[in-house]
């Protein structure tokens, strides 16, 4: 028998702590598969965030650094500047990257830092118990917007991929989704391109991944994936926001 699909060895055998149906597991696997396919396991360093992916170092079978909340792009910068031959990526959620770490991600892009960022947008704070994120949709109920996000009170959700794409130093920015298999396949291709961008020293690359948080959304895993399609994608359009890798 020929293997069509099996778990990549770039993921450890540790069972992930994520809730059933959480998109993080899918994205972890995609990142690990890309690292395996590019043959860069022995030189890739992962910088994991504070948030649900805080234990990422247990799952990625590579050297890892746990960064302070929002600071992964700065910490990754320090590492990449010391060992430019390493492939350095950050894996960050929307509280981490779009809120507390907004300055660090903007300036990593602004410097054209030769790192790769995987940004998980699930429109909520997961680890702390479902609070409102900068990416929470208008009207979406969270534990700190119990009546639904009111744009008069706290603005409209921030579109990170579009924002980063306006920065000169960003070489490749794409938004993808893991709501269905075709989109998962596209997401993997985008993540691969973002790593290739670093290998080719083209500049900063960011992939925003629309992902699910069934527990804090109060939905079943399948309903959560449907909600990405029905509610998130219309506000957060998928696609390449910037690509100068061929220039």
């Amino acid at each position: 028998m020929k293997t069509v699909f099996k778990k990549t060895p770039v993921l450890t055998d540790t069972i992930m702590h994520y809730c059933p149906g959480c998109g993080h597991g899918i994205v972890h696997r995609l990142v690990a598969e890309v690292i395996e396919e590019l043959g860069i396991q022995n030189k890739t360093i992962g910088f994991v965030p504070v948030g649900c992916a805080v234990f990422g170092y247990k799952y990625f079978n590579i050297d890892c650094v746990e960064a302070a909340h929002g600071r992964a792009p700065a910490a990754a910068t320090g590492c990449k500047r010391v060992n430019p031959e390493n492939i350095v990526f950050t894996y960050q959620g929307d509280g981490d990257l779009a809120s507390i770490g907004a300055a660090e991600i903007v300036h990593a892009a602004h410097r054209g830092e030769k790192i790769t960022t995987i940004f998980i947008n699930n429109a909520i704070y997961g680890m702390t118990g479902g609070q409102m994120a900068p990416t929470t949709l208008v009207g979406q109920k969270t534990t700190t917007s119990p009546y639904g996000r009111d744009p008069e009170h706290c603005g409209k959700p921030i579109r990170i991929a579009e924002m980063i794409a306006t920065i000169e130093g960003a070489a490749y920015v794409e938004r993808v989704s893991v709501d269905c298999v075709p989109n998962i396949i596209k997401a993997k291709a985008a993540i691969k391109k973002a790593f290739q961008c670093q290998i080719d020293r083209k500049g900063f690359a960011l992939v925003e991944v629309l992902s699910s948080c069934p527990t804090n959304w109060g939905k079943s895993p399948a309903e959560a994936m449907d909600w990405i399609k029905s509610d998130m994608i219309p506000y957060y359009p998928l696609g390449v926001k910037k690509d100068t890798t061929n220039e």
Partner: peptide, 20 residues
């Protein structure tokens, strides 16, 4: 490297120290 803030600077130190 001139960082965007002291917060970023010390975290760059963290990353560089982590790299040895």
């Amino acid at each position: 490297l001139q960082a965007e803030s002291e917060v970023a600077a010390i975290n760059m130190v963290y990353g560089a120290a982590a790299a040895g």
